[in-house]
């Protein structure tokens, strides 16, 4: 039986969220992502760092872009990857999350990347299997690699996060991307603002250390960068909003609104975009949009996370007797 994955000093066995990480740990991941950016620029986009490791992408929620990004990260590190599209929740589909996890462990998986519809699912899994667990999005709780790639992108352009003013715009209430960003940004000393209709802001969001920006115009005046969240159709159907059209007219990031910004605002979006709802096409494709660099950074950040968590056992190191 393989020994349990050794906790890397500082990062632990799993990456469940950004909330438990210190600034130093977050910076370690971002710094580690730098050399991995370079790997993706090479003609042969592969390094043998995770050769022989087996990684399962366990996605209970459909997601093309996150899964592909993780898959590239894994393959560029020479790991063996398996994609499992599992169905629904424990209750609806029979096999519980615990059983799924144990079955994977019985196949000697080294790492699991999990996306699940229930908040806490990644932590739940991490507590029950010895493999490393990486949270690719659990319910409304956190999406740590998205938060990290957003931080890396901001750092690329602003050189430092400390003192930066970042406004997160949209459905904060239901957004794991928002939560991860709030934790990561505040941990690194940024000022965070949230902007959205009151129905989509948690009542006690101020207690997270953020400023409430009532209207998108306020956000544009205040911020150095906007992180625009995708608005989901279900919110309208559940009565949080009257219509997507109204959302665009009141909260949409349009070039007319951006023209009034006192400085050049960096535009981020986790994707996929609802063009014409939360963000207009000319903004998404405009000169201040870093949406595509975010995607590039996503692979690098995920490689960094996988690399850092995949540390081997000290016992093995002693046996192998490594040399120079």
């Amino acid at each position: 039986m393989s020994p349990p994955a050794t906790p890397v000093p500082g990062l632990g066995k799993d990456l469940v969220g950004l909330e438990p990480l210190s600034a130093a740990q977050i910076e370690l991941i971002l710094d580690t992502a730098e050399p991995f950016k370079e790997v993706s620029e090479r003609p042969i986009k592969k390094v043998p760092a995770l050769r022989g490791k087996t990684i399962v992408n366990l996605f209970f929620e459909a997601s093309t872009r996150t899964r592909i990004s993780f898959e590239f990260a894994e393959k560029r590190l020479s790991a063996d990857t398996v994609n499992v599209a599992a169905a629904g929740s424990s209750v609806s589909k029979g096999e519980t999350l615990v059983d799924t996890a144990r079955n994977l462990e019985a196949m000697r998986i080294d790492m699991v990347v999990i996306r699940h519809g229930s908040s806490g699912a990644a932590q739940f899994l991490g507590q029950r299997i010895r493999s490393n667990v990486i949270n690719a999005g659990d319910g409304k709780h956190e999406h740590p690699t998205q938060g990290l790639l957003d931080l890396l992108t901001l750092r690329d352009y602003f050189k430092t996060i400390r003192g930066l003013k970042v406004a997160i715009c949209g459905d904060i209430l239901h957004s794991r991307v928002a939560r991860s960003n709030i934790w990561g940004l505040t941990r690194l000393g940024a000022e965070v603002g949230v902007c959205g209709p009151a129905t989509l802001l948690p009542r006690n969001v101020r207690e997270l250390g953020v400023t409430i920006l009532p209207r998108i115009e306020d956000a544009i005046q205040w911020a150095d960068a906007l992180n625009i969240l995708r608005l989901q159709l279900e919110r309208m159907q559940a009565g949080f909003l009257p219509s997507l059209r109204e959302y665009n007219r009141v909260f949409g990031v349009t070039s007319e609104r951006l023209a009034k910004a006192p400085k050049d605002l960096l535009i981020l979006h986790p994707g996929p975009m609802n063009r014409g709802v939360e963000i207009d096409s000319d903004v998404a494709d405009g000169p201040y949009s870093v949406i595509l660099p975010q995607v590039t950074n996503g692979v690098a950040v995920r490689m960094a996370v996988l690399y850092l968590l995949a540390g081997g056992s000290p016992d093995w190191a002693r046996q192998a007797g490594g040399g120079e």
Binding site: V8, P35, A310, G311, P314, A317
Partner: peptide
């Protein structure tokens, strides 16, 4: 050249070594 990612003992070292710049 940073050879960290090509080391033959990477699977067995504990904390991950820091990766430097390759260009």
């Amino acid at each position: 050249l940073d050879i960290t990612l090509y080391r033959d003992d990477l699977q067995t070292v504990g904390p991950r070594p820091v990766v430097g710049e390759t260009m």
